Amino acid sequence: MEDTMAEKDSAPHPFVGMWVTADGHIRQELLPDGRYDEARGRRRSAYTGSYTVTGDHIDYVDDTGFTATGDVRDGVLYHEHLVLYREGEAPTG
């Protein structure tokens, strides 16, 4: 069963929120309405589109039609070649 967004009056999906690379350069926000907004450096909304969640897997469709995938394992989002952490939880050092 697909889990595209939270039902009205229910808690948002646990993946909703801001995900960032360890260096903070890439910031991907998964919104509760099934949309995402990705910033790169100072470029806000560099990529936007929709996403669907199936289990721990995320399928992305960029507004230009480009597709990508991601998987959340042990609280870390592996999105194509990127490794993203919950905002404030990225490793330091």
Rank of each mutant, 00 (worst) to 15 (best):
M1S: 12
M1V: 08
E2V: 07
E2T: 08
T4D: 07
M5D: 01
A6Y: 09
E7L: 04
K8T: 08
K8V: 11
D9I: 00
S10R: 15
A11I: 03
P12S: 10
P12K: 04
H13E: 11
H13N: 13
P14F: 15
G17P: 07
G17S: 10
G17F: 05
W19C: 00
W19H: 01
V20K: 02
A22I: 00
D23F: 05
G24W: 05
I26F: 01
I26K: 13
I26Y: 02
R27I: 09
R27P: 10
R27C: 06
Q28S: 12
E29Q: 03
L31G: 00
L31I: 14
D33K: 02
G34N: 10
R35S: 13
E38A: 10
A39V: 12
R40K: 11
R40L: 06
R40T: 12
G41R: 10
G41H: 13
A46N: 02
A46W: 06
A46L: 11
Y47D: 11
Y47W: 13
T48D: 09
T52H: 11
T52A: 02
T52R: 07
T54K: 13
T54L: 12
G55N: 03
G55A: 01
D56M: 02
D56E: 08
D56N: 15
H57E: 10
H57I: 04
H57Y: 09
I58D: 00
I58Q: 01
I58F: 07
I58R: 01
Y60N: 06
V61H: 03
D62I: 03
T64I: 05
G65A: 06
G65L: 08
G65H: 02
F66N: 14
T67K: 12
A68Y: 06
T69Y: 15
G70D: 08
D71W: 02
D71F: 06
V72W: 10
R73K: 04
D74Q: 03
V76W: 05
V76I: 14
L77D: 10
L77C: 03
L77S: 01
L77A: 06
Y78Q: 15
Y78D: 01
H79Q: 05
H79V: 03
E80D: 13
H81E: 06
H81Y: 09
L82G: 04
L82N: 15
V83H: 03
V83Q: 15
V83K: 07
L84D: 11
Y85T: 04
R86I: 00
E87V: 00
G88S: 06
E89I: 02
A90C: 08
A90G: 01
P91D: 04
P91H: 07
T92Q: 14
T92R: 14
T92P: 13
G93V: 02
